[in-house]
Every structure is written in C-alpha cells, then in structure tokens.
C-alpha cells in the first residue's frame, strides 16, 4: 500500500505510527491527569515511546543482535542500543527523584491532586489580598 504522492509504504512506517501513538498517549496522560503519580506513569510511557523511536530504525530485517560472531554478517545497529541503555537507567533514577518530590508534596499539602494543591496555594495569597 502506497501513500498517494509520497512513495512511502504504510508498512514501512508502521513502527513510527506505534511510537507516535504511545507518545500521544503519554503526552495526554501528562497534560490531562491531575494526579501526580499518574503524571509520572504517563511520563514513563512517553519515555518508552522514545526508546522505540531510537531502537526501531536500527533494526535490519535478517540482521541479528550486535554480538560479533563468525556465523553472522548482518547486525542491527548497536549505537541506539547504547544510548537507550543509559537512558533507561537515567529514566528510573529521575522517576525516583520525581516520586520523592511527590511524597514530599503529599506531606506538605496532604494531597497529590494538582488542582487541590493549586487551590491550597491560592487560598493564603487571596486571604492576604483581602486584608
């Protein structure tokens, strides 16, 4: 199946569309949901879509994992693997940092809903203005 005028096949771009779907879903969760933990889950979904964005172009059909051996000649691209490997570990470290912030916010405000926190923030300043 060819897209009119572009000469691109839909099958050839299938991985990009999956990546895009995950990215949109992650972005939507981050924007739409007020719960801070849910936001972090959305953020990690967004992050995994980026992993896919990097890894998918590196794959060669008929290639094998990039571990050198005499039996194979075609290897998938190892460079994205290296980059994403480090990205995953950094991702979980930042996730932990975010969760620590959430826990602190929960202790300070007694809530992890964004709008409740904002209204709590607004309340004292409004009181000051009225005085």
């Amino acid at each position: 199946m060819t897209l009119a005028g572009t000469g691109m096949t839909l099958g050839g771009h299938f991985t990009y569309f999956i990546t895009l779907f995950l990215m949109i879903a992650g972005l939507f969760i981050v924007i739409a949901r007020g719960n801070l933990i849910k936001k972090l889950v959305g953020l990690s979904i967004f992050q995994t879509s980026v992993y896919l964005l990097y890894i998918a172009p590196g794959k060669l059909v008929g290639g094998t994992a990039p571990i050198l051996s005499d039996a194979f000649t075609v290897y998938s691209n190892p460079l994205p693997h290296v980059l994403i490997l480090t990205a995953i570990v950094v991702g979980v470290a930042t996730l932990a940092l975010g969760l620590a912030l959430v826990v602190r916010i929960r202790e300070a405000y007694g809530s992890i809903e964004e709008d409740e926190i904002l209204s709590l923030d607004a309340a004292p300043s409004r009181a000051e203005q009225q005085e």
């Binding site: 979980v92 470290a93 932990a96 969760l99 620590a100 826990v103």
Partner: peptide, 16 residues
C-alpha cells in the same frame, strides 16, 4: 553505583 543508588532509593521509600 547503580545498585547502590537503587538500593538507597528503595531504603528511603520503604523507611519513609
């Protein structure tokens, strides 16, 4: 480093 950090984070959360 990685195992140290992961363990420390786990300890912090669990201890909390």
């Amino acid at each position: 480093t990685v195992s140290g950090v992961m363990l420390k984070i786990f300890y912090m959360f669990a201890d909390r």
